[in-house]
Structures are given as structure tokens and as C-alpha cells.
Simulated scan of single mutants.
Amino acid sequence: MGGGPANGLTERFWEAFHVARHSADPASVEKAIDLGHAVLAAEDVAERRLVLSSLGGLLQTRYHQTGDFEFLQEAVRKVTEAYLLAYESPEDSARYANNIGMLLHTAFRQNQDRGTLADALDWSRTAVNEAPSTKKAFYLGNPVVALRTAFTVTKDLDPPGGSRRARAGRRRVLPR
């Protein structure tokens, strides 16, 4: 990690993150989330995409604790930002795309919006497409789950929606 002013805050975030990851205590998750936001607000954040991705995981945990859909929406936004920063690393971008696909599948289970399901499938496919050849098999499970869900919902072998790129003009992460 860098030696800038955010370094102490970043170290506190990682300590809180590790505690929250192994705790069922909502207060420890909330503390780690607050520290994650503070780290991202600092201008000299080292490992920004890793902090974003980890914060996304914490927000997903908070969603499961509270049922508040806004936490899940924010998780998708944070991990999407991490994905956008990972353009030079196919392995990292595949991992983030995979996580976005899982988050969106979770969101679909709550909101039942077919566009959300289509986005989950698209992100899961993106993970497979962007993964290095030696890692592709690892990412094949999520498209299968999304396709199975799509078939269960639509009773159609042609999944809902078009490609994520075709829908990119909508500028939505999740419908409210």
C-alpha cells in the first residue's frame, strides 16, 4: 500500500473488512462499509478497485442482513466501478464481471425484473468471455444458473433481453 494520507484509513478499512467478513454482527459490517466509503473519498487511494470490490461484498452482506434493496444496488455500482478500472487485467475484470452477474441474479430474485435477469446473464457471459483460457471453466457456472432461472421464468429457451452493450444506453444499474 502507498504511503499517502489515506494509508492509515485504508489499513483500518482492511482490518474492519476482515472482522466483518467473519462476523454476523451488523455493526461490524456497517463500520467496515463506513470506512470503505471514507477510503474511496480520499484522493490517493491505493488499490481502489480492490476496495470497491470488497465494499461491494460488504454491501451485499448488509443487504442480506437488512433486506434493504438499496444496499444491493450500491453493491452493483461499486463492483461495476471496479470492473471499469480493471481494463488492463483480464483476470480481474472477469472476476468482477462474475461478481456483478451474481449480484444481479440476487437482485432479480427480489425485484423479478426481466431486464435485471438479462443483465445478470450478460455479465456472467462477459466473465466467461474475458477470463484467461485457463480460468474459463471456473466462470461457467453463473451463466448456467442465469439461463436456468431465465427458462424457469419465461419457459423460453431464448433468454430475455439483448446484449448488455445493446442496452447500455439505458444507463441503469438496477430498476428501483
Rank of each mutant, 00 (worst) to 15 (best):
D156P: 13
A20C: 10
L140S: 08
E47Q: 05
A42Y: 14
R114F: 13
H105W: 15
F13L: 04
N7S: 12
E70M: 06
E88Y: 15
G57H: 09
A150Q: 07
D68I: 08
E88R: 11
R77W: 12
A16C: 05
A38C: 04
D92Q: 11
L35K: 03
D92R: 05
A75D: 00
W123P: 01
L35G: 02
G57K: 02
G141V: 14
N98C: 00
P5W: 15
S28G: 02
A27K: 09
S54R: 03
F151D: 00
V173A: 03
L117T: 10
G8W: 14
K31M: 07
R21A: 06
Y96G: 03
R164E: 01
F151Q: 01
G36P: 07
A137Q: 09
E130G: 06
R48L: 08
R95L: 12
L40V: 10
V29Y: 04
G169C: 05
R148L: 09
K135Y: 15
P160V: 14
D25N: 12
L140T: 14
K135L: 13
T80F: 12
G101F: 15
N129I: 11
A20S: 11
G36M: 08
D68E: 10
R62T: 00
T80E: 07
E15V: 12
N142D: 12
S93Y: 07
A150D: 09
Q60W: 15
H64N: 05
D92T: 08
P90H: 07
S53I: 05
